[in-house]
Design a protein around this nucleic acid. Sequence first.
DNA 1: AATAATAGAGTTACAATATAACATCGCCGC
DNA 2: GCGGCGATGTTATATTGTAACTCTATTATT
Lengths: 169, 169
Amino acid sequence: MTQIAADPSLPLSPHDHRSCASDALAHAEAVCESRNKRFTENRRAVLKLLLDDHRALGAYEILRRFDWGGRSRAPVQVYRALDFLESMGLVHRVASSNAYVACYRLAERHGAVLFVCETCGVVMECGELNLQSMMDKLARQSGFTIHSQLLEAVGHCPSCARAAEAVDP
Amino acid sequence: MTQIAADPSLPLSPHDHRSCASDALAHAEAVCESRNKRFTENRRAVLKLLLDDHRALGAYEILRRFDWGGRSRAPVQVYRALDFLESMGLVHRVASSNAYVACYRLAERHGAVLFVCETCGVVMECGELNLQSMMDKLARQSGFTIHSQLLEAVGHCPSCARAAEAVDP
DNA sequence: AATAATAGAGTTACAATATAACATCGCCGC
DNA sequence: GCGGCGATGTTATATTGTAACTCTATTATT
Ligand SMILES: [Zn+2]
Ligand SMILES: [Zn+2]
Ligand SMILES: [Zn+2]
Ligand SMILES: [Zn+2]
């Protein structure tokens, strides 16, 4: 477990993704252990698929990639695993693309600010808490009570932005 | 046209919603006029349904309420109107509930910060630009180029929060 | 160890949301 | 009138997400 909080630009910087993923997996085990939740094979398998890289996958893409070993191919299984993982703060739902992305911040259950590249699908997660607290402040001013927040931006990651710039300057 | 920018807590304060809606409708006409876009009957009808109150409606709820006058009841018509209205900044999509809400800020095309009550469905739109620019700043720091933002909070509006407080203190 | 209680997995069927494809219509400029 | 183009109408289909129920595995209790 070498990192506490991931650099937001981690997905884009060349890095040892093997250890990146295995750290996250180990963290997931620890989190479930500490909360007396079972980190079952299904849940582990789904998380592993998401840990393949820093992209988001749709539930049905996970369904396709899943090794079903003779069992019937049912979306509900995938959704159950995803719901669990999300409730543990191990994956985030990407609302702008109906997809799910693994969380690489080895932190307790937390909200997320997501930057989604619409070209390559990479998701950068940002730990910036000022946004969340600003949202909270705005809410309080109007007497609104927040249960959950959704903070996303869709656009181009640095490398895809450069590529787009090159063809259309 | 009595207001320039709606108070975020407008939906909750008792107000003359008749003029609230008709102002928004007049603004919609003006916007389409100024951009040489046709504000057709379908588009007007969909917007009118959304202007009934300050709640979000799903596309299929709009579909049900729509007066089809003998024509076949096709979702694609509703989605086309919604896409148009959204591109004009006259409605906002509420990603957290796959729904659409009319915009009452008589402003040019703009992003939105939405506070969605999960009990009564009311949507408060907030014009706070600091959030958006903060998001932009975060993006720039990582070399990310933003095309669109998604800023939402789900929770309880003031009156529903009081009601919840009463039963479960 | 037997038993009861509970959480998760497996299966089937279905609901809810969104889009593709193509023919047709109507407006607007010529 | 006619051609171009944006909007509509229609049908079919794709994508995303749940309900309901059975069965099995794990854990707690006796
Ligand atoms: Zn990595
Ligand atoms: Zn990219
Ligand atoms: Zn109103
Ligand atoms: Zn409410």
